[in-house]
Design a protein around this nucleic acid. Structure first.
Lengths: 342, 342
DNA sequence: ATGAAAGCGCTAACAG
DNA sequence: CTGTTAGCGCTTTCAT
């Protein structure tokens, strides 16, 4: 791996006794050279250890073969799974990824956008950001795709899980198993979370369940603080454990579901015997927990693959006319051990 | 964020009525222009929305302001924490990071090395790889730093946690609390793991503890399979739970420690009342687990910061003469709930 | 089938 | 203080 390799196409040409044009054609296999010279030049390239300077190629061709990936927090397993798959997909298409960890700061996001622009990235994947980019998108529009974003304008490409559908599935699952449905959530404004909540409410309404307001507990903390003990949750669980119809709690995500299970165990409430819990995401918590958590899993691989497909199409200027602006990725109910199967 | 911005320094020069050289000097603030023209040009730059083409700058200056980060698996929280911090540090030094997820495949690693070389990265951070790069390092050596790597040659820069020291700390902790020391590990060849094992053995020897071989259980699985039930481990735990001196088990990493605790709970063995467990890493498992796991935590931030410092020095050709080739980052014992404090 | 030469956007002598 | 110009490494007409 010797970079800063100072030998250029010129050197190859000189040593081979041909012109740079010929060498270039051979490197890019763009035809119009003889087998003989090809073989000769290829050998020289190998001998000299020549490595094409992509910077020059990019400058000349106005294509950097580089894409930017904006991610709120690469330390979050959901995001890192998506980033990983995107990076793989893009690499196999010949693109390198510059990953930008924004820490959910729109300031950092803007700084990164500037750098990516300067590096002349060919495209951009933005995960879970709601920074409005409209105003800056004055001139040529950069091929872009958003993952898990509120639709801001009609012509953004968005790939996202079916959060609403997942919310329905979770709630219906509880009902089908004769569990009295409740929902526990944390503080959030994210649309993906809210969709799940709306679905929960809609299903309850459709089934004419009473006391809607008592069925939703919103904790005054964010999802990453899920290891704390919350008296509010304890009271809630104690109350539910005394009901005649066994309760089924929809934890708005697996962190919350895990939190509920932990709290229940601390309170000597048996899961799923006394209380059932269903989560959302399919994160490692659903596996790590004892009992393992029944959950709605998001297909991070599919999300990544679709996002890359949409992006690559744009970068190649070959967007299918009927390619939808918003692509929804199905979610899947995976039954594990935290729900009582009545 | 309009990339593929077609307006160049030439356009700015033309509109401003000055030469490109002047514009360049102003952009780079390299002096020799008047306040008046500066103000004028800066305004035009802003009006036109000019964005410097780093590709051209890189080509011209033979410096890409880009570094490559090779990581085995960005999905692993230990690695992602390091990558995140590296990326932040490098960004603040003006470098963009191309992150390469190698999946521990030396083939992929080689492919990435090729791409990074072509992109003329200025430096390379390689995490936990043991691919030998000697033979390829024929010509100019690329500034590089390795994180958690066996020393291959004397002139590689390596940053790594004090695994041996951590192993000593864990073992001594068990002894100090009058716990009968045992160690459980998985299949591995990694040097960082082995250092911990050597430390365990050395401390036992120094304390003349008998039955060394019975004290180490090596499970026939890798650390990521830690959710499986292993009969071997169950037998081991049952035996230990019957000893007169309470056992203290050193789980070679937090995954294993978590696995031990789960198995113990399944077998109705109380942790830490009957058996104590100490882990290594300071991963989220140590927090998530109930009881929380006493563990030796690695300082991922410090590792990243030091690695970047070493790399940036190399890239600036200002390596301190007394900068050591191998930098060891201290680890810390954090006592939580999985160890009995006798 | 091959070569000469222009030019991508920029920086850095050098000249004034 | 400012302009002219060569050239970084490469691709791509246009000749031949």
């Amino acid at each position: 791996m010797n970079s800063k390799n100072n030998i250029s196409i010129k050197d190859v040409a000189r040593v081979s006794g041909v012109s740079v044009a010929t060498v270039s054609r051979i490197i890019n296999n763009t035809g119009r050279f003889s087998k003989t010279t090809q073989k000769k030049v290829l050998k020289i390239i190998d001998d000299l250890g020549y490595e094409q300077n992509k910077l020059a190629v990019s400058l000349r061709s106005n294509k950097s073969h580089t894409v930017g990936i904006m991610v709120p927090d690469i330390t979050n397993e959901f995001y890192s799974a998506i980033v990983k798959k995107c990076e793989q997909e893009l690499f196999s298409e010949g693109y390198s990824s510059i990953i930008c960890n924004t820490e959910r700061s729109s300031e950092r996001e803007r700084a990164y956008a500037q750098v990516l622009a300067e590096h002349r990235v060919d495209g951009l994947i933005t995960i879970s950001s709601n920074v409005d980019t409209e105003h800056t998108n004055n001139a040529t529009r950069l091929p872009a795709v958003y993952i898990d974003r509120d639709p801001h304008s009609k012509d953004e490409y968005i790939v996202s899980s079916e959060h609403y559908r997942g919310g329905e599935m979770a709630t219906n699952f509880l009902l089908e198993h004769h569990l009295n449905p409740y929902l526990v959530m944390t503080k959030t404004k994210s649309s993906s979370t809210m969709e799940r909540v709306y679905a929960f409410k809609d299903v309850l309404k459709a089934n004419q369940l009473p006391n809607m307001d008592d069925r939703i507990l919103q904790l005054n903390l964010t999802s990453d603080k899920f290891l704390e003990n919350v008296p509010e949750l304890d009271r809630f669980l104690k109350k539910l454990s005394k009901e005649t119809t066994p309760a089924g709690i929809f934890g708005i995500n697996d962190n919350v579901a895990y939190m509920i299970i932990r709290a229940a165990q601390r309170l000597q409430i048996k899961v799923p015997e006394q209380i059932s819990v269903i989560g959302f995401d399919g994160s490692s918590f659903s596996e790590i927990s004892a009992p393992k958590i029944t959950t709605i899993v998001q297909d991070t691989d599919k999300i990544a693959v679709e996002a890359c497909r949409v992006l690559v199409q744009q970068m190649n200027n070959q967007v299918d006319r009927k390619l939808p602006r918003v692509i929804n990725i199905p979610v899947k109910l995976v039954v594990k051990e935290s729900t009582k199967m009545i």
